[in-house]
Amino acid sequence: MSLLAAAGSLDPAARSFLSPTGVEIVFLLVGLAVLGSAVISVTTRQLVHAALWLVVALGGLAIEFLLLTAEFVAWVQVLIYLGSVVVLVLFGLMLTKAPIGRSPDANSGNRWVALGVALAAAGTLVTLVVDAFRTSWVDLGAGGGSTRVTGEYLFRYWVLPFEALSVLLLAALVGAIVLSRTGKGRVPKPRAGKLRAGKPVGTNGRAASATTARPTASTPPVQES
């Protein structure tokens, strides 16, 4: 069951794993980088570093997408993931007062069970996948994932899911806003000021400044504390 020795006889081009196509080599190297940074991301004790290594992993994945001729997806990945998701994560870390530097309790007590489960899952999946796709090659012709093609199929065949997704995004947006409101963060209701008549301008001005200074109440605690 050696992955490297399985030279498929079905392919007429008589390719073998050891014949270098640049794509494969690059894919492999980038894949290693992705994997490595993913592993570091889930094991490091410095929480912010974890987020940054995640950036590396996701970036690497974008390159993989490129290698697989899915250019639009690759740029969307960079845009969405590296641009907003990771930034959101960093904001989340900041707002939940994640410790800067090493945090001693970054891993829970569950980690050995987690390791076991992960290894089992990895073993199962890899075995399954390798056994199933031993003799399958991807034909990397160019152009399958260009923006033009993507736009075509997206708005021709996948329009309805696209629209549903936008509704989903709206719901998520509204939900996020609602959830992150604090009870105390209300804007104070505007009160009508007292009308004072028959007073000289100087005193009126002073009285007015006094009245305007009143409606302070308790300043709502901004979302940072």
Partner: peptide, 18 residues
Amino acid sequence: MHLVYPAVLAALLFSVGV
């Protein structure tokens, strides 16, 4: 490219995520 490469990478990445 052999399909195994991306498939295995995906499987491993998934396990790391798990």
